[in-house]
Design a protein around this nucleic acid. Structure first.
Lengths: 203, 203
DNA sequence: ACCTGAACACCGTTCAAGT
DNA sequence: ACCTGAACACCGTTCAAGT
């Protein structure tokens, strides 16, 4: 069976399998990927330009998920909150993929109508026009940073500081998923407060 | 010359060369690393447990730089500002190394007396005790996210949105290093404002 | 056009040999 | 204890052959 009647592979099929592979905690390797797909390794090269091409395809698939996201709410605060939460979910659903995405140069125009919604919300919040994009980027960097933080599930602290205030706080601090969740909520609250204050003083 | 009178290598020497290699935009590969160090590849294995061991050593070296950082200022705001800036500098000086560090499990106690200073500052700012650590983590995630953002030097936006507000803003938005710098300053301002407000309403 | 198996280059790791 | 060169396993990529 050299050529099947119906194509077994596609750029998207490969990308989805690759995302799953990495999500499961494995390295992005061509041999295990081909195994999962039930094809020979060299078959992949008919659809993707090698390993780097696979990473590009992964990016494209994940970008698609962006497109579904943006919803404008009545208040700017609700819009900002749900947008940042969506970004965090998107990044956080595949934290192990993120380092891979950093390694490829982006050559496709990102689907940033998502950002358009955020821009409008920040505008109606009262953020000065020349600060809006930096604010959007701040929210993005925050969501990205929090997602990556989830890869190190515990707060690491020096045993030598056990007697200090830090040590005391650390002992009653949650770990893992719960810690990451809390960090997100706190950071989002602070950023919302900051945006509101910035708008007030700019008025 | 099988054994030199004085050791040519050390864990630290290897780590520093590796950081430089990655900073220069190269992959972390054993052969080029050995070349830079002027030794044979197998020599490395007398000091480090393979490639993963090299990454651990890189982490250790970079952690050392933490230790120098913490300085308590008169006002909580100055302390927070300089601390976050230091984190950002640390991460931002070696953005390409960061994805590597994410791939290893941390088995050394981090030198977090740095965080102790931040904890004290947030306490004197008036942040409720049970929110302090999450706030520290928020600041850390922000600095980390901004550093990684610097790897994608431009704001990517869909050419289709050229006529929109987003397109208009994007055209007058800086790129590269300057864009990243601006994003950091804006985000830090927002977070400071947010912390101040949180403390005010908690009082 | 799409899949395969074999061949190849490359990279990380090991180990016996040398001082 | 520390460095070397050779040998080895592994992984990404290419390509002629098959439908």
């Amino acid at each position: 069976m050299a050529r099947p009647t119906r194509a077994l592979l596609s750029r998207q099929i490969i990308a989805r399998a690759a995302i799953q592979l990495v999500d499961d905690g494995h390295e992005l390797q061509v041999v295990p990927l081909a195994e999962r797909l039930g094809v020979s390794v060299s078959s992949l090269y008919h659809h993707v330009r090698g390993r780097v091409g696979i990473i590009h395809a992964m990016r494209e698939v994940l970008s698609e998920e962006y497109r579904l996201a943006p919803v404008a709410h009545a208040s700017w605060e609700d819009t900002v909150r749900t947008s940042v939460r969506t970004l965090w979910n998107l990044y956080g659903d595949h934290p192990r993929v993120l380092p891979l995405l950093l390694s490829v140069v982006i050559d496709e125009p990102a689907t940033v109508n998502f950002y358009g919604v955020l821009v409008d919300a920040l505008d109606s919040a009262g953020i000065p026009e020349n600060e809006i994009l930096s604010t959007v980027e701040t929210l993005d960097a925050f969501a990205f940073g929090v997602a990556l933080d989830s890869l190190s599930p515990n707060l690491i602290f020096d045993p030598g500081t056990e007697e200090s205030r830090l040590g005391a706080l650390a002992r009653s601090h949650p770990v893992g998923q719960e810690r990451n969740q809390l960090l997100f909520e706190r950071g989002l609250d602070l950023l919302i407060l900051g945006i509101r204050e910035r708008a007030r003083t700019a008025r």
